[in-house]
Write a protein that binds this DNA or RNA. Structure first.
Lengths: 207, 207
DNA sequence: TGTATCTTGTGAATCAATTCACAAGCGCCC
DNA sequence: GGGCGCTTGTGAATTGATTCACAAGATACA
């Protein structure tokens, strides 16, 4: 399959969200133009994005809302449940563990890890915090699909190496660090400092 | 000034982080190639990124670490303190308020807001939670520079409209929603559901 | 001073993403 | 069934970002 750009996948994800909203409001069909307006893009962009995966619309009419939503879920791999572990239960990690938004969309948090004896054994809304010493053994036994990394900057790469070695293929990284991983491992980094600096830049360099 | 791509600004932010690390290790100069390796990019990319703002290097030698760090801070607008408010103190908002990483880089949280009487008046590591009813008056009096939006999805656009009307020009959005704002307001969205779906897509569509 | 070595800065070339523009399909109504 | 209005799907054109490749500046040292 032709390589799909990251930006395309992000838009597909956005379209699905809009479709779910339309679905709950009982709309049967939607045009690429309406979808585009909602997502701040253009109708040509929407059609091009979808065209990578097939033709789902009807000329003159638009797209069937439930059908397109279904196809997008399929494309995005949301037809199943993904098993997620959280590594690092500081401020951010703990907030993520307690955040129930993930569960809704098929991401189940099965465990959380930390190295601080003061927090090991604690319960984060039903998710137990385990000693990170058990990380490798647990991963090999329970084969989680995704690891959310929320450890301090200097622990990010060492912990990543452990995760990769244990067989993890997808990492959502909240540490402000550039992670090095093999080509078959996918990393998405959420770097709040970087986003804030982007805003700082925008505020500073306005003509 | 020529429009600078978002991706360029993100890389500048990364370079600065690396330079700070080099600086703390006492290195005096650095080449574009070393910077590139560290950031997972190429030396040509590094030089091109910097060339938008001037020529800071010495041929044959590289860049002076402290000088380049200083120039990057200037470019990114980090020579001053930015006043930040947090709107919404649920799981994520509260974790951000308590997160001390921002302070270090010149982002000072001056207030937090919520509409839940149970949490209004609480103290989040020194930051008081105020009734969101005071939002507009506070913004007009204290003119914060950046608003961090951490409210539920359906409140995101209404609260954004209030912020914009009160004069906010930069928003860091954690709500899973596409915000509509005037052209002179900058929004950066951090959407964890979208990142997870990106990982789901990658795990699903691997050849 | 001259030569060897290194690394920048930058046009030109390539690669990638977005937008344009239009033929073709579909539904509706007379 | 034929004509009209609407919207898709998609090559072609354009715009934008990245990579190439090399002349020129800087240092080191004989």
């Amino acid at each position: 399959m032709k390589r799909i750009a990251d930006s395309t996948v992000r838009r597909l994800s956005a379209y699905l969200r809009f479709l779910e909203d339309f679905e709950s409001r009982g709309l049967a069909t939607i045009s690429s133009d309406e979808l585009a307006k909602r997502g701040g893009t253009t109708s040509a962009q929407v059609r091009k994005d979808l065209s990578f995966f097939g033709s789902f619309g009807k000329r003159g009419l638009g797209y069937s809302v439930p059908e397109l939503a279904g196809r997008l879920r399929e494309i995005l791999g949301l037809g199943r449940t993904w098993r997620v572990i959280i590594v690092g239960t500081g401020k951010i990690g703990a907030a993520l563990a307690r955040h129930h938004g993930f569960q809704q969309r098929g991401f189940t948090i099965i465990a959380a890890y930390d190295n601080d004896p003061a927090i090991i054994g604690a319960d984060l809304d039903g998710i137990g915090v385990r000693d990170i010493a058990h990380l490798e053994a647990d991963v090999r036994r329970q084969h989680p699909d995704i690891a959310v990394l929320a450890v301090p900057e200097d622990a990010a790469q060492p912990v990543t190496d452990r995760l990769v070695k244990a067989g993890i293929k997808a990492i959502l990284n909240f540490a402000p660090a550039q992670l090095h991983v093999p080509a078959d491992v996918t990393v998405k980094t959420v770097n709040m400092a970087m986003e804030l600096e982007g805003l700082s830049f925008a505020l500073t360099n306005r003509e």
